[in-house]
């Protein structure tokens, strides 16, 4: 069998009777970068939480390699203003991490200049790098990154994706990331999973790029936009609630 780190089989998650994820299959291999894309409310973060073991699926099974070490980079971090915490101390909250290791991890992500800054005082881009450094300190076999380039300018985003690619080469770890940004992700990933409660389509970036389901989900943006705005497959009513309209299915879609 191959080097699977984690396998999800037919995973369904329901909140209050409402399915957020339906029949999702996922197989993450060592050394592979998998990117989850999809509109808001597609269940991307929910799927990440299942992978992390923070959420038990309502149906389906999750298999993990035994003693799988996961490095997790959360979508956001807001530390109480009253808590005086330097970046160094933040990194050393990981069990068994000394000063030298923390410094090395920061250097690895190119953020050594903020070592002694208070965590609340660094910029959004620096914080993303610090969070990535913390994930690396776990010596992860699997890196899980929830919108890793959030709050970073476009030039910084490309740079951050390149960094993630380099880290994968270096550590041979698998990477699962969530992204909103179609264009930049395409060049930085081995496999794209297009999620909209179910897996709409998946495969290599070029393959997905040519898939009708992908175009149905992202419309014009799929071709041309670097920063994409998704097309809804549903409309919102006056209260912001979701009004479902049928969406178009591609040939690989099995529901």
């Amino acid at each position: 069998m191959s080097d699977s780190l984690i396998r999800l089989h037919d995973v369904t998650v329901q909140f209050a009777g409402q399915a957020v994820l339906e029949g999702v299959n996922l197989d993450l291999q060592a050394g592979e970068i998998v990117t989850l894309i999809g509109p808001n409310g597609a269940g991307k973060t929910t799927l990440v939480r299942v992978v992390l073991g923070l959420l038990r699926p309502s149906q389906g099974s999750v298999w993990r390699q035994s003693r799988l070490r996961i490095g997790y980079m959360p979508q956001k971090l807001s530390v109480e203003a009253t808590l005086p915490l330097s970046v160094l101390r933040f990194l050393r909250l990981v069990a068994g991490v000394g000063r030298a290791e923390a410094e090395a991890a920061l250097a690895e992500v190119g953020a050594e200049q903020v070592l002694n800054s208070p965590l609340q005082a660094i910029s959004g881009g620096e914080l993303q790098r610090v969070l990535l450094a913390r994930a690396l300190l776990r010596k992860p076999q699997l890196l899980v990154l929830d919108e890793p380039v959030q709050g970073v300018d476009v030039a910084g985003q490309a740079e951050l994706y390149r960094l993630i690619g380099r880290l994968r080469e270096r550590y041979g770890c698998g990477v699962l990331m969530v992204s909103h940004d179609l264009h930049l992700v395409m060049s930085a990933t081995d496999q794209v999973i297009c999620l909209n409660r179910h897996v709409c389509c998946s495969g290599h970036p070029e393959q997905v790029g040519a898939d009708p389901a992908f175009h149905a989900l992202f419309g014009q943006d799929a071709r041309s936009l670097a920063v994409y705005q998704h097309h809804h497959d549903h409309q919102h009513d006056l209260h912001g609630g979701v009004v479902l309209t049928p969406h178009v299915h591609g040939p690989h879609c099995k529901h």
């Binding site: 997790y72 971090l77 933040f90 069990a95 913390r134």
Partner: peptide, 18 residues
């Protein structure tokens, strides 16, 4: 002390870290 600080900073991150 250290575990308490870790969960105060980010509970889910602390949980993923075991």
């Amino acid at each position: 002390w250290r575990p308490l600080l870790a969960i105060t900073v980010h509970e889910e991150l602390a949980r993923v870290e075991g």
